[in-house]
Design a protein around this nucleic acid. Structure first.
Lengths: 161, 161
DNA sequence: TATTGTTATACTCTATAACTATA
DNA sequence: TATAGTTATAGAGTATAACAATA
């Protein structure tokens, strides 16, 4: 093992470089660090559209699943219903989606994207794909597919009671 | 002007199942979902030890790099210095680490793990490895190594100016 | 009684600005 | 002036409890 490069110190010697070798093998540690990088990058990409990761995700899901309810959206986004309310509020206030009453069940709202929302989403999606290419550009198509497949399996394995 | 929202003819019918096919190809989306599962699982694993992901990480890094400063620890953990203070406070209050003054530079502290801290860390680390095996058990050794290597490359690619 | 959407609340994580004490 | 640690603060994300309206 390599000793410190300041041999004259007594007890409190500060290491030249910090080793994270023990943690590096843990999937939680590696995943967190990679995710933080991606999240920060995505936030920068979405900033010009005044979207965050959560609002972008919600907008995309509403666009792809017209008429879905807030409960359905919350479940799809893996967040609790109370947390979704503010997200839907924000998108509705900005005129990007609508909350439509459902005649057959007056408790629920059917969410729809507006033409404004669709336009913004189209531009944001282009920017996101462009930025993903920048990050994933160094990976081969096989590596990228393997990564996403592995992540999906990890996600599925976490179905906890 | 007619605020014609939502595609015409789209009745407010709620879809049977919600599709996230558009998002699934985005690394940010897949990574977030997998990370959330792992984070929740890790939190449950560390709960009996009254540790969180951040305090466990800090404790491990202090154990592996005796005498490191808070600035070094903050940089290693990729968090801002102010956020690290409360983490170190908590670990010190619980008697798991010590803050030792450095004679050669009285501005800095040298962090050291205590024997209590080392004992707790050993038990927590065993539990974490056991739980990681539970999550990663469905992956082959090659898949696991490939995943960690890919995550590391993604992390490195995000070195933003 | 159960469910949808909601309000209120709290805790964690992250970030920035500004202060102190040292260098 | 520059740096290490600190305080204060703010913004997100996430979680639970409890409520009104509706089923």
């Amino acid at each position: 093992m390599a000793e410190d490069s300041a041999p004259h110190g007594t007890a409190p010697i500060q290491p030249e470089s910090v080793s994270d070798a023990t943690l590096r093998g843990l999937i939680g540690y590696s995943m967190k660090r990679a995710f933080m990088v991606i999240r920060a990058d995505l936030a920068r990409t979405l900033e010009p559209f005044e979207l965050r990761m959560m609002t972008f995700t919600a907008l995309t899901l509403v666009a792809d699943n017209p008429g879905l309810s807030q409960s359905q959206l919350a479940q799809a986004m893996a967040v609790e219903r109370p947390n979704l309310v503010v997200i839907v509020d924000e998108l509705e206030t900005r005129g990007l989606i609508t909350r439509d009453r459902v005649p057959t069940d007056r408790r629920t709202y059917a969410l729809h994207i507006t033409s404004e929302g669709a336009q913004l989403l189209a531009r944001a999606t282009r920017a996101v794909h462009q930025h993903e290419n920048g990050i994933m550009g160094k990976l081969t198509a096989e590596e990228e597919a393997a990564l996403i497949a592995t992540l999906k399996r990890i996600e599925a394995s976490g179905g906890r009671s």
